[in-house]
Structure formats: C-alpha cells, structure tokens
C-alpha cells in the first residue's frame, strides 16, 4: 500500500467516525453529545480562559509536564531494574514475585496513598505516576534483557570492546525495540494515572478539567478535552515516536528492499 492510499484510508476512517457521531448525537442525545454542540464547546475551550483564568494550553502543559517527568524517571528506573532482572538470576528469583505484586496494586490505591503521605499537591503526582508505570517498563526491559545475544557479547569480548563500546553498540541496539515498546506502554498507562491524580488531588491539568465539567454534567466540554488530549497523543506517536522508531530500525530489511546478491 502506498502513502497516498494509506492517508486516504485514514481520512476515510475519520470521516466515518464523524458521520457516526453526528447520527448518534441525533439518535441518542442523552448519551452522546451532538457533534455541533461539541464543536462549539471545543471552540469555547480553545479560545476562552477557563476556571482560575487559565487558558487550555496551561492545563495541557501541566499534564504533559507531569506525564513526561514521570516517564523519564520511570524509563530510567524501569530500564535499569529490567536489565538487572534479566541479567542476574539471583536478583530475578528474589524480586520477580514482588514485581508482579507491584503490578497488581490498583493505581487508584497508589494515588490515594500518595495523597495521604505527601499531601494534596503536585508532588503526590510526581511520586504516584512513576510508581505506577515503572513496573510496566521494567517488565518490558526484563524481557528484552533476556533476549540479548550471547554470541555477540562473546564477539565483542574477543575483539576487546570496552564497557562503553559494548553498551553503545551491542546492548542498546538490541534493546531498542523494547525501549520503544516500554515508552509506548508507559505513555498510555501514565497519562491515565496523571489524569486520576489531577482529578482527585489538583486544581489544574486536563484531569482536573474533566472532573470539573463532570461535576457540571457538561458532556460536550468533557468531549472537547478528550479530543484535545487524544490529538496530542496521536501527534506524539506519528510525529515523534514512529519516525524515530523507523530511523533507529532502518537496518531491518523490509519485504521489498531485500537485496540478496551472490
């Protein structure tokens, strides 16, 4: 499928969704806010200052700030933890049960406990979000570390590669697909937890806006906020992650590009 075909399928799917929404809004007005109402609510959100005189981008930025700060911390902690688990059997047998236990704690509980420990402020969020997403990343990197090729490690050892060269040229490239998968799963889990924190504990951010308009039973405005954030996440995926992934994975042969000579 070429680029044009792919974009036209994407455009068609967006058009179909909008049509369905429009029809659904007329058929079930109590459940689904109408498309026209949502669009006018979205315009209000985008152009007029909301509660406490803050424009929409202030809230979006606050959410992004917490989400990405948490992702950076979790990517570092989770990667180290995962690699350690994958490379060290003693650590693996000691800790693996606790990792699964950690994953089993409901994120809501973590958010509430953080609020009790730290208070009803942003610091609770900066604590709770990494605590929730780190084990997801660790689990991914753990799997990645288990697949590291010992033959390549032996080759590097034979040629006398140092620690830095081995890490940079042998370990990281093998873990790259797992790093991308970790980041994606961290992002998708992390933004939900960030919203929870904002809805329960804070007075800014996208989560707080959802809570506020939920209190007013204002479905069109809630929809507007949802649209804003979904669009943001799609931009992150298609604008940043996918091109980066493609660049890093450039060496992988694609079906048509395989050129075998001899």
């Amino acid at each position: 499928m070429n680029r044009l075909q792919r974009s036209s399928y994407t455009a068609a799917s967006i058009a179909a969704l909008l049509a369905l929404w429009y029809a659904g809004g007329i058929a079930f007005p109590e459940v689904l806010p109408g498309l026209p109402e949502t669009v006018s609510a979205l315009i209000v959100v985008l152009t007029e200052p909301g509660p406490y005189g803050n424009m929409f981008y202030f809230h979006v930025w606050k959410t992004i700030e917490m989400l990405f700060a948490a992702l950076i911390v979790s990517m570092i902690a989770g990667t180290f933890l995962g690699i350690a688990l994958g490379r060290n059997e003693t650590l693996e047998s000691t800790l693996s049960m606790w990792i699964y236990g950690w994953l089993a704690i409901p994120s809501l509980v973590i958010v509430f406990v953080s609020a009790i420990w730290i208070g009803f402020n942003a610091n609770s969020g900066y604590f709770a979000v990494p605590v929730v997403i780190t084990p997801f990343i660790a689990l991914n990197m753990w799997e990645g570390a288990r697949t590291l090729d010992t033959d390549l490690a032996e080759m590097a050892e034979f040629f006398g590669a140092g620690r830095i060269q081995t890490f940079k040229d042998i370990i990281v490239p093998q873990l790259a697909p797992f790093l991308f998968a970790s980041f994606r799963s961290g992002l998708s889990v992390g933004w939900k937890i960030t919203l929870l924190v904002e809805a329960f504990l804070l007075t800014r951010g996208v989560g707080f806006m959802f809570k506020r308009y939920f209190d007013n039973y204002d479905l069109p405005t809630m929809m507007s906020w949802l649209i804003i954030f979904v669009i943001f996440l799609i931009i992150v995926e298609y604008g940043v992650l996918a091109p980066l992934h493609e660049r890093v994975m450039e060496w992988r042969p694609d079906a048509e590009g395989v050129r075998v000579t001899e």
């Binding site: 033959d151 040229d169 992988r252």
Partner: peptide, 27 residues
C-alpha cells in the same frame, strides 16, 4: 583474529561500521 561459525555481525551497523567496531575495540 577470530572467525566464528556464525558471522556474528551487528545488523544495525553497515558493513563498514562492523569492521570499524573491531578496529575501535582494538584501539
């Protein structure tokens, strides 16, 4: 020098860079 049963190349590096890997490792 060592030539293994499998080529043991770094698939994410070009052919030249694979050779440079060994040169770098050998200082």
């Amino acid at each position: 020098g060592y030539i293994f049963q499998e080529p043991r190349l770094l698939n994410w590096k070009t052919v030249s860079e694979n050779i440079e890997f060994a040169l770098e490792a050998r200082d």
